[in-house]
Design a protein around this nucleic acid. Structure first.
Lengths: 226, 226
DNA sequence: GTAAAGAATGTTGTATACAGTATTATTTTT
DNA sequence: AAAAATAATACTGTATACAACATTCTTTAC
């Protein structure tokens, strides 16, 4: 119940609330705080060596991002993702990722396209090496370039937020036999379609990719129900 | 520069920050605060008769909702919507409203369907009476029932947020000659498709509706550039 | 023995105080 | 006179203090 969070350092010049927010978000994503667990302001503030003010502001942000739920005068609790929640997220993401892929096919620059291909290789290497941390890292980079190429900042923010919300359980599907290889192949085809500036096909590839990702995740989760 | 905001009353039991947030949001939507205008915490707190704490928390929320931009150590400014921003919002909304309409066609209950048809009439009456306040009110109700029927709370939140972000300028398109009548007809067809549980057609109707709305808004805005 | 009521404890909600930084105005120097 | 530097002012960022409310435990009454 204690020693969950590391002390905050003020190295970069971000407001404290941002650092605190990222800190808590990561702790939730990494399972340091279990779903449903109560988060107490004073305790977290003490552990991170800051006052309650930035902690409160961080919690407000996390609430909007869907990581925690606040009950007035009762407290803050870590959200627990139900099957329904995951379904809801994927329903939206199938729409938005399809949109983003189509826009990217129209708007991506040659430099970004090269970057995308470079990151595809990077993810591939990480998979070969079986280095999960590197896979996750490169995968995030890959998607970020893709969403940036849509030239729609709001879209990028919404998708990234949805992605983060299911990060907690994405690890489950990553460990699903063969899923990484499939993902890589799906990404490859998507990039191929975008490189060909084929809007329709890019959209279809994105949709297929997301639908597969959801299917695997669902399968992995129901298997894990032990 | 002063007297912009009314005093806050604590009638219901919502946290102060929520009341303050709604207050400021409405002031922005109603043009009380001009786009680009600087918002100062102490001043707003004084005007509403509360302390800075709930005001700060409200501003954080409005920042995430896209109504204001914060520059660290500089202050908060009301976002100003560019043509690009409107384009971005509609790009996303065309996707999400299409999704929502399709889901609603699958999942709506008979009671909700009746409610939808009732609200359609209500909007129609308001248009006949040329009562803009009533039109807006009924329109919001109509869409809320529709989004609820999608049975995807996240989707509903995201769309509602996007809707609010462009509320500031939606009045412009409402006053566009003939647009209200067209809107009504488009809504009617959408409800018809949903009532028939025709997913494909509902999606198409929603897409057409949104595309028309965007087109009108763009036309109205460029005409207003005087 | 059990249930209800009250008191004590702890946590959230709000206010305020203080510190640090950005901006603006004034003064000095070129 | 114009530009630069410095000082003053004002706002944001953070900390802390206080009040209100929820929860839990203890005590009392039936």
């Amino acid at each position: 119940m204690s020693g969950h969070l590391e002390q905050i350092r003020l190295d970069s010049y971000k407001p404290l609330r941002e650092l605190v927010c990222e800190h808590i978000r990561e702790a939730i994503i990494n399972g340091v705080f279990a779903p449903g667990e109560r988060l107490m302001e004073i305790q977290m503030a003490d552990e991170m060596g800051v006052s309650r003010t930035p902690v409160r502001e961080a919690i407000r942000k996390l609430e909007m991002e869907g990581f925690v739920v606040m009950i007035p005068r009762r407290g803050t609790y870590v959200s627990n993702m139900s099957i329904k929640d995951i379904n809801d997220v994927y329903e939206i993401r199938i729409s938005l990722d399809t949109l983003a892929a189509g826009l990217a096919a129209e708007r991506i620059s040659d430099e970004e396209l090269e970057e995308l291909q470079r990151l595809l290789v990077k993810v591939g290497n990480a998979i070969e090496e079986n280095d999960m941390t590197k896979v996750v890292e490169a995968d995030i980079e890959f998607h970020d370039v893709l969403y940036k190429a849509s030239r729609n900042e709001r879209l990028r923010n919404i998708i990234n937020n949805l992605r983060e919300q299911i990060t907690v359980i994405r690890g489950v599907s990553m460990r699903y036999p063969g899923r990484l290889k499939d993902t890589q192949e799906e990404h490859r085809r998507l990039v191929e379609s975008i490189a060909a500036r084929d809007v329709e096909k890019s959209q279809e590839m994105a949709r297929i990719h997301l639908e597969n990702a959801e299917r695997t995740l669902m399968a992995a989760m129901s298997e894990r129900k032990d």
